[in-house]
Nucleic acid binder design. Structure first.
Length: 504
RNA sequence: CGGGACGUAGCGUAGUCUGGUUAGCGCGCCUGCUUUGGGAGCAGGAGGCCGAGAGUUCGAAUCUCUCCGUCCCGACCA
């Protein structure tokens, strides 16, 4: 036939970063805009984000959080209040200095009306939210204060990549105040568990839960918990973080309350967030050389019905049957709502239309033509199984579609989990560790490495040398790890293994 | 922000080193015919100030400079 074997070129093996971009493009998820680093999220990509947002929003509300909305702009002085926080974010802030434009002699618009105090476009909102929390919190009776906001933030990034790292991105940021450290810490763990649960059960993306090392911590936090996922190039993606902020921001913002005994105390705060980066993680966890694969639970559309109309005289009949099938399927409940079905009756050739949906990663394609009508059958393609499709009896399919979607969701998760397990290993020897993270072909490095579980004596100098020598970082200290051993770098005692990987 | 590669139609590209008549080609798009359980075939057609600006030259996609953008590698990060 001379046709390309795969819809996406290059393949993952040939050039992983380029493959990623081609998948995003072929699925029509997002594209770059005239504003450097800022992407437009197109309907198919935004539909996925809406599903992510809606599912998480329910989980946040179930755990007692309320949504609110805070300003986009933060006075420069606010950011300055927490020393570590400034250090962490100063280098990537967009700054607003003027309030209007005036045409000059040549008719060129020039900024005018300089602001007394520059405004920072929020890179995160701890300081502005802290300012307001300080007003809201007076008594222990006001606590815990559990707030979340869905918003956009701006971090002026040097190397943007669609979904993974963009100058502007969408996220949610939870901010809470508690009367005790224990309760705040418990909150960070609770939210981490929600993130892990969401990543695994909705995005079918297995994650490790753990704590960041001191050097990888959020600026201004006492501790940072995270979920880490393995992409198909075996690199780690930080997919969500949950921070225990101690009393640092309470001190900086004046979040004080009177305790039961009448004594004034500082609040204990937390913050936690996930972003549109999750979509990048989803793409790199599941997609193949034919394009995107979207887990059913977050797919904007679960199934598309493709009418096959070879002859004009049967066209009306086929279309009617397709619409009827769509109605039947929409009556079925999957993942707490109706099954989302579209009939794609665009005037396009069948093969091409089919491939468009493959590249978009829709979980199910259902082709229905005149012959199917005669046999009461439908021709079903499961995206997770590749291009093979099978004929099923109409009523059997309607009966089974919910369990088929569940099976797809499950199989994507299992596949991703096996992949991670195959590429995770315990390493006890430094030489072996270095060879694990070194590509065979230096000029054009092949996909290599993975997650290495090694013993580390917690001395930051080894972390530093790992970064310098191998570009490998400590992704996290896994939760509950307690097996003691000997540090792979120093030979000194180590309290537990940590996860090493290259990362995004 | 440093190092490298690149920018030609919606997408992918040839031509650039060695300046020279209307800048080719594939996919896609439009029209017609044919085909019809599969990313169709044939014929015709539309679509480009060759990333932007300046310069060298009789003449620039091609040479020089500046800028912008994209990708990779570093530093930084969700």
């Amino acid at each position: 036939m001379g046709k390309p074997k795969n819809a996406i070129s290059p393949t993952r093996e040939e050039n992983y970063p380029e493959w990623y971009q081609q998948v995003v493009k072929a699925a029509d998820l997002a594209e770059n805009t005239p504003v450097r680093g800022c992407m437009v999220i197109k309907p198919w990509g935004y539909g996925i984000w809406e599903n992510i947002r809606d599912a998480l929003d329910v989980m946040f509300k179930e755990t007692g959080h309320k949504n609110a909305y805070f300003p986009l702009f933060i006075p420069k002085s606010f950011l300055q209040r927490e020393a570590d926080h400034v250090d962490g974010f100063a280098k990537e802030c967009a700054v607003v200095t003027h309030s209007r434009l005036e045409a000059d002699a040549d008719g060129i618009l020039q900024p005018a009306g300089q602001l007394d105090e520059p405004l920072i476009v929020r890179p995160t909102s701890e300081t502005i939210i802290g300012e307001l929390f300080a007003r809201w919190v007076q008594s222990y009776r006001d606590l815990p204060l559990l707030i979340n906001q869905w918003a956009n933030v701006v971090r002026w990034e040097m190397r943007p990549r669609l979904f993974l790292r963009t100058a502007e991105f969408l996220w949610q940021e939870g901010h809470t105040v508690h009367s005790t450290a224990e309760e705040a810490i418990e909150e960070t763990q609770k939210m981490l568990r929600i993130y892990a649960d969401f990543a695994e059960n909705w995005l079918a993306m297995p994650v490790l839960q753990g704590e960041k090392t001191v050097s990888e911590r959020f600026p201004g936090a006492e501790s940072t918990l995270c979920i880490e996922a393995m992409m198909q190039d075996r690199k780690a993606l930080q997919a969500g973080t949950s921070h225990f902020l101690g009393q640092n921001f309470s001190k900086a913002c004046g979040i004080k309350f009177q305790g039961v005994e009448g004594k004034e105390e500082l609040g204990w705060t937390t913050s936690w967030g996930v972003s549109t980066r999750l979509i990048g993680g989803m793409i790199m966890t599941h997609s193949d050389d034919d394009g995107l694969i979207v887990p059913p639970k977050v797919a904007p559309t679960h199934a598309v019905i493709l009418p096959v109309t070879p002859k004009e005289e049967t066209r009306g009949q086929v279309l009617e049957a397709c619409n009827e099938l769509a109605r039947e399927l929409r009556d079925k409940i999957y993942s707490g709502g109706s099954i989302r079905v579209d009939v794609d009756d665009r005037d396009l050739r069948g093969g091409e239309k089919y491939w468009q949906w493959v590249k978009k990663g829709i979980p199910l394609t259902i082709e229905v033509g005149p012959r199917d009508l005669e046999k009461s059958s439908v021709f079903v393609g499961r995206r997770d199984l590749g291009v093979q499709r099978e004929s099923m009896h109409h009523s059997e399919f309607v009966e089974k579609i919910v369990s088929i979607l569940e099976e797809i969701q499950q199989s994507l998760y299992s596949r991703a989990l096996s992949f991670r397990e195959e590429n995770t290993c315990e390493i006890n020897d430094k030489k072996e560790l270095y060879s694990f993270f070194t590509a065979q072909n230096q000029s054009k490095p092949e996909i290599h490495g993975g997650f290495a579980l090694v013993h580390w004596d917690r001395d930051p100098k080894w972390e530093e040398s790992l970064k310098n020598d191998l570009k490998v970082s400590i992704r996290c200290i896994p939760e509950g790890a307690s097996e003691e051993g000997i540090c792979v770098f120093s030979g000194k005692p180590s309290p537990s293994r940590v996860v090493l990987a290259k990362s995004y």
